[in-house]
Design a protein around this nucleic acid. Structure first.
Lengths: 202, 202
DNA sequence: AAAAAAATTGTACTGACGTACAGGATGCGG
DNA sequence: CCGCATCCTGTACGTCAGTACAATTTTTTT
């Protein structure tokens, strides 16, 4: 198995990775592009800025090589970016050498190496056509968030009032506060915001 | 590696699977439940009805065993169901014995075995927070669909009228027709419908 | 304890929204 | 030709939404 760690800028592969693949080479961005090195797996660290730009070019440059993104500070956004770009793996840079080898075996056989939390996130969000309103903007107070949740399901002020056991006037007060805080003009645009979009977007 | 093919009803594991794992056992649903057999991988065919109900019980019954769903007629909906239930693999029942073994190796090491098309679908749908309104309900006329598209981005009747070069009254007429046809009561619930949800859903 | 933030409700107003009457124009298939 | 669907527009009315003045009470923070 030919492993290749792609180095961006002054970044270096993690020591544990080196330990896992003593024979592997690590190339800088420019060298790799010109050399079009043949590899089974291309590893890419996220430490240095600019790694994401390179990610998009990997499929074209290395053909059948599978890409694995190695992050020292794994997070959901970065993982999604990696997967969207076609990476078959996303793993922690502080993994043990043995884990790195396992990842290599999985990816090399055509499998995906993805944390189960991330996979659950994928399944969950992909399953519900309408994205859940998950965490509402934190600038909303507790009560305002409740009102926002209600309106996001299509309820009217009167219905919300009945549901929360308060007056319609109070609901309006909360709505006004929500509009001001989030910078939207009416309940419809609020729903679009809460559902993850922006007003005017298709 | 201990492989276990879980048989539902009168279904049988595919011949190719048997070839891949000659030593593996296949148990019927009831026997498996009572025996709580120890296995590294639990394979489950989708041929017989009732397989999906059993899928949800696998984690509790077999502990650390990874689940792989085997389908003779793979499709997206079935795959999503399998993944949602925690399966780490979804593969074609007509795969070669060698492929089955590869799947086993991947899954056994903690990886996911998922077709790249399915993975792309996951990424794509999970990425767009707000689902595009794609195809609008076909019962809408051409003009009504235009109005619906506009309102789905948060525009007011006046804005829509200006955008389409018609009177606000006409927009209202179209809106009314849309409400009747789709069975919603106001623009907010219409947007929720168009975005793929139902009124009252979180 | 004082201050700040949050929650609640009131009246009143404007404008947007939805609908209930309409009617006229166009185009298409029977 | 005539019905049917679609598109466009009008007036009018009731309801809902959002805001501009509020005020009171409770909770939290300093």
């Amino acid at each position: 198995m030919r492993n290749l760690f792609l180095v961006v800028g002054a970044a270096q592969p993690s020591p544990r990775w080196r330990e896992a693949f003593p024979d592997a080479q690590s190339l800088t961005q420019d060298v790799a592009v010109t050399a079009r090195a043949q590899a089974d797996i291309v590893w890419l660290g996220t430490a240095a800025p600019g790694w994401d730009g390179l990610l998009a070019a990997i499929p074209g440059l290395f053909g059948a090589a599978a890409a694995v993104v190695v992050s020292n500070i794994p997070n959901e956004r970065e993982a999604m970016l990696a997967l969207k770009s076609g990476a078959h793996g996303y793993c922690n840079g502080w993994a043990s050498p043995r884990q790195f080898q396992t990842v290599a075996q999985v990816v090399n056989r055509g499998g995906y190496w993805i944390g189960s939390e991330l996979m659950n996130y994928l399944i969950k969000t992909a399953n519900k056509k309408l994205p859940a309103l998950g965490e509402l903007p934190k600038e909303l107070s507790e009560r305002e968030a409740e009102v926002a949740r209600e309106v996001a399901t299509g309820r009217s002020n009167k219905e919300i009032a009945a549901s929360l056991g308060i007056t319609e006037r109070t609901v309006k007060a909360h709505m006004g506060a929500i509009f001001t805080k989030l910078g939207v003009r009416d309940r419809l645009q609020l729903v679009l915001r809460l559902r993850g979009g922006r007003a005017g977007e298709a």
